[in-house]
Amino acid sequence: MVAGGLDVLFCGINPSLMTAVTGHHFARPGNRFWPVLHRSGFTPRQLHPSEQRELLSYGLGITNVVARATARADELSRAEYEEGGRILEEKVARLRPGWLAVVGVTAYRAAFGERTAQIGPQERTIGGSGVWVLPNPSGLNARWTVEAMAEEYGRLKSSPSGA
């Protein structure tokens, strides 16, 4: 679900099995993407995954680093991440969002070879777009609370458009 000229293109790691079945991003129960997106100010109300098309009206889109659906992201190979990063670079260069927001620091590191990357804005740009790494909203990422994630996503929301 992408379009040219977005303010932010959110990029998940890969589709969950639930996403593959429903066709809706971040559809797995327990995933905190939709509550965090609302609490951080990106959407005026909490959207349901089935309402993902509404994101386009807010200047937002969603894609993934790797297209293959898995039960867990640790089932992906290094080669899949690297190929996904290459494809993502082409997509971002073509669509030119203000920001590419990768949700998951491990995915960002693996896809782009940035072994020391941390959560937050990155020095690198892709196709003229700024890059921001956000915490992974998966329920498996218990280290980050909804409130802490919403604060970090809010930092992106309040920042000037990309590079």
Results as ranks from 00 to 15, higher is better:
20 A>Q: 15
148 A>P: 05
124 R>E: 13
8 V>M: 03
94 R>C: 01
112 F>Y: 05
75 E>H: 13
87 I>S: 07
141 N>Q: 13
102 V>F: 09
99 W>M: 04
106 T>F: 13
120 G>H: 05
105 V>C: 00
161 S>C: 14
155 R>H: 09
85 G>S: 03
159 S>T: 04
138 S>A: 14
83 E>R: 13
89 E>N: 08
58 Y>V: 03
102 V>Q: 05
73 A>P: 04
92 V>P: 04
51 E>K: 00
97 P>M: 04
129 S>E: 04
85 G>N: 00
5 G>P: 05
119 I>Q: 02
7 D>K: 15
67 A>R: 14
75 E>G: 08
8 V>Y: 05
134 L>Q: 09
144 W>G: 03
99 W>Q: 01
22 T>E: 06
99 W>S: 09
126 I>S: 09
50 S>F: 06
11 C>L: 08
57 S>K: 09
6 L>P: 04
98 G>R: 12
42 F>S: 00
122 Q>Y: 09
83 E>G: 07
97 P>F: 12
84 G>F: 04
27 A>N: 12
45 R>H: 08
100 L>M: 11
20 A>K: 15
86 R>D: 14
40 S>N: 07
17 L>Q: 14
54 E>P: 00
3 A>L: 13
60 L>E: 00
29 P>H: 10
129 S>A: 15
138 S>I: 13
17 L>P: 03
19 T>R: 01
113 G>Y: 02
13 I>M: 14
77 S>Q: 07
151 E>W: 05
157 K>R: 15
26 F>K: 09
121 P>I: 05
46 Q>H: 05
42 F>N: 06
47 L>C: 08
69 A>N: 07
98 G>K: 12
87 I>G: 01
123 E>F: 10
33 F>A: 09
9 L>P: 05
3 A>T: 13
58 Y>W: 10
95 L>P: 11
120 G>C: 00
47 L>S: 01
30 G>I: 05
112 F>L: 04
60 L>R: 00
28 R>C: 00
132 W>Q: 03
74 D>P: 02
106 T>P: 03
52 Q>W: 09
74 D>Y: 10
118 Q>K: 14
58 Y>L: 15
120 G>Y: 01
46 Q>K: 13
68 R>E: 14
136 N>I: 06
3 A>V: 07
63 T>Y: 02
51 E>N: 03
63 T>S: 07
158 S>D: 10
143 R>H: 10
35 P>I: 02
93 A>V: 06
148 A>D: 15
97 P>H: 08
45 R>V: 13
72 R>P: 02
74 D>F: 11
118 Q>W: 02
141 N>W: 07
78 R>A: 15
134 L>S: 08
61 G>T: 00
115 R>T: 11
82 E>H: 02
68 R>S: 14
45 R>N: 10
71 A>I: 03
106 T>I: 10
26 F>R: 01
9 L>C: 06
152 E>D: 10
78 R>M: 12
9 L>R: 03
148 A>N: 12
115 R>S: 15
114 E>K: 14
66 V>W: 01
152 E>Q: 15
115 R>V: 12
151 E>A: 12
13 I>E: 12
73 A>Y: 10
150 A>G: 06
102 V>Y: 06
160 P>E: 13
64 N>S: 11
